[in-house]
Simulated assay, not measured.
Amino acid sequence: MANPGYGKRLTADENPRGEADFAHLPPRAAELASLIDRLPEGSAMGYKVLAATHPVHGQQACRSALRELTDAGHLRLVKEHLTLEDSSKRWVTRTYWSRIRRSDAWWAEFVRRVHGVDVTVLGRAGLARVGEADEADEPAPAPAPSSSEAYGVLARLGRTEPRMTLSAADCAALEPLAAEWLARGATHNHLTQALTAGLPSPVHSPAAIARTRLENKMPPTSTTGTVRARVNKIVMMCGGCEADETTTKLTNGLCAACREELDREPESDDTWPPVGYIPDTFRADPVECVVNHHFRADEARIAAGLPPRGRG
């Protein structure tokens, strides 16, 4: 798990898992996507941590696969500047994940909606302080109901239990109660389970049942240092080098340099070099044999930053 306040976060708008979720991706990226998709919220998302978790791929493969997943529209790396309840300021880094591949325009709109959202961060120790924000910062606007985590959990209840399908009006009316659950440390799964488990038969009014359970089963106020915070700035970052959009142009979540590197990478780490190949530069003495011009050419291409030529 990442430090509190960091790591994986869901976009709160997902379909149930299916076998074809990542069929459009190259094999390496699809394998990593399946792993990431099953990690809980708050999991560390650095390529070194993922490589330590993945049974096959190493650090370079995971780093490349993260760029592929960013380019394909499954994740975005962002920095959020938070104003805490004591008026202090913090930056946190999050990786937003979507099982559904999203367009660049969709992600831009998603990031715009996150601005101003009230979030809860467990524990101050995980919040990286980078100094107070500019005094000219304007107060963050109140979140729209459709952009809140609580509203999203309520809107998805029907996918878990069809008898608890709520209307938009129901979700808006119940959102403050659900938001209080999340503020007290409840997870999305905890809230969903509380509203869908042990239902009577038949269910005449899902909204009435949800309200009764939200009121009567409200978790106690946390005593573990829960910190309420609001996002007052959000900046998208390159999924490869972590340069932010204020210093470089991003296309599909990648800067030009990382996109160029992605375009020239082989799909798998084991395509080069061939097993047993040792460049002459690593030998004590030159090998007295016929020069292999294919290897010489490939050495020159690699030194120039180009991939080796394919051999049939």
Rank of each mutant, 00 (worst) to 15 (best):
K8I: 01
A12C: 13
A20E: 12
A20S: 11
L25S: 01
P27Q: 05
S34W: 06
L50F: 11
T53L: 15
H57S: 07
R63I: 00
S64P: 00
A65F: 13
E85S: 07
Y96D: 02
I100L: 13
I100M: 12
A105P: 05
E109G: 03
R113N: 15
D118T: 07
V119R: 11
E132D: 12
P141Q: 08
E149M: 14
R156F: 10
S167G: 14
A169D: 13
A169H: 01
L182R: 10
L182W: 05
L182M: 09
A186S: 15
T187R: 12
A197T: 15
G198Y: 00
G198P: 02
L199Y: 03
P206C: 06
I209C: 07
A210D: 04
R213A: 06
E215R: 13
K217M: 13
S222V: 06
T226P: 08
T226C: 03
T226Y: 09
R228F: 08
M237C: 14
A256M: 06
A256E: 14
C258F: 09
E267N: 12
T271H: 07
W272K: 04
P274T: 01
I278G: 00
R283Q: 13
R283A: 08
V287Y: 10
E288Q: 14
V290D: 13
H294E: 11
R296N: 10
A300F: 07
I302F: 02
R311W: 12
